[in-house]
């Protein structure tokens, strides 16, 4: 069985240039199995054959590898720190240098919850402080389906558990069991597809250049092995502007080599500042 899984992955590598070496193998296996079950519990061999004959299935399978689980303001403490410490600092430095644009990248945005959360925080800050700054907000994910979902901005109640009532009323329109992001918030974010392992650039192409004041990459690294984590982290750090802020997921840890480049601004959250 394992052998077949390996064959499947090799096939994906040759066909779709999908480099599975960075992922946890067990997870990939589980996801293949998941897909097999989804298609009616056929044998892995049969599935492999099916895969070879149906080009569409390769896409499906790769997308199935992507985990797009998140909800708004996941890790409330981290977001609170972002709102109270990092965002005011970023805006203050912008005011000092008389710049009018803040550049943000949500790398691995999945279905957009995190990006929208941050956009809300910025908007709230602007409203409170009577500020007028442009947000150049890029949110990317490898999974085209997830990006589509993010663009639609329609969520179920499970995503909403950490959203404060005021924000809920202000930034969502409620439907039957759905919550839709209001268009003006949607307009603030540019969603696009970007592979964090893409070698030719370190920032999404829509952004043209890096210089991000804030980069969010939460619970993305956990899917990759150490080597790939390093690769991605290096890209993220490169894409940051000097003194830019990087926010990682709670269980993501920086290797020693990165401690020279990043300074953790609070021990309670994985928020770092580029040195």
């Amino acid at each position: 069985m394992k052998n077949t899984h390996l064959k499947i992955l090799d096939f994906l590598k040759s066909e779709r240039n999908f480099d599975y070496s960075g992922y946890h193998f067990a997870m990939l296996e589980r996801r293949i199995q998941n897909r097999i079950i989804h298609l009616g519990s056929i044998t892995p061999e049969a599935y492999f054959e099916y895969l070879q004959n149906n080009p569409e299935e390769s896409t499906r399978l790769i997308e199935n590898f992507m985990i797009n689980v998140s909800h708004f303001f996941r890790d409330p403490l981290s977001f609170e720190l972002l709102a109270k410490v990092a965002i005011p600092a970023i805006i203050a430095s912008k005011q000092r240098s008389d710049e009018h644009s803040i550049r943000i990248w949500s790398a691995g945005c999945a279905r957009g919850e995190e990006a929208y959360s941050v956009a809300m925080l910025f908007n709230e800050y602007f409203a409170r402080e009577m500020e007028q700054l442009n947000l150049d907000f890029f949110a990317t994910d490898f999974d085209s389906q997830a990006i589509e979902k993010a663009k639609q901005g329609i969520y179920t109640s499970t995503s909403m558990k950490e959203v404060k009532h005021g924000l809920l009323k202000k930034y969502f329109t409620e439907g039957d069991e759905t919550y839709t992001i209001i268009p003006e918030l949607k307009m603030k974010i540019q969603f696009s597809i970007y592979d964090l392992l893409y070698k030719n650039s370190y920032a999404p192409s829509e952004s043209i250049f890096g210089d991000f004041d804030l980069v969010l990459c939460r619970n993305v690294l956990i899917y990759f092995n150490q080597e790939f984590q390093k690769l991605i982290l290096n890209k993220l750090i490169k894409s940051l502007a000097p003194k830019g802020v990087l926010m990682l997921g709670e269980s993501e840890v920086l290797g020693d080599s990165f401690k020279e480049k990043l300074r953790q601004i609070s021990k309670y959250a994985k928020i770092f500042e580029k040195k």
Binding site: H24, A26, M27, R30, R31, N34, H38, I67, N68, V69, T158, N219, L221, I222, Y223, G249, E250, S251, E252, V253
Partner: peptide, 18 residues
């Protein structure tokens, strides 16, 4: 292991959602 656990939990959540 922590990260793997986190990933797995997300995966599980994803499966649940699926």
């Amino acid at each position: 292991s922590n990260q793997k656990l986190e990933a797995q939990s997300e995966e599980l959540q994803q499966q649940a959602e699926e």
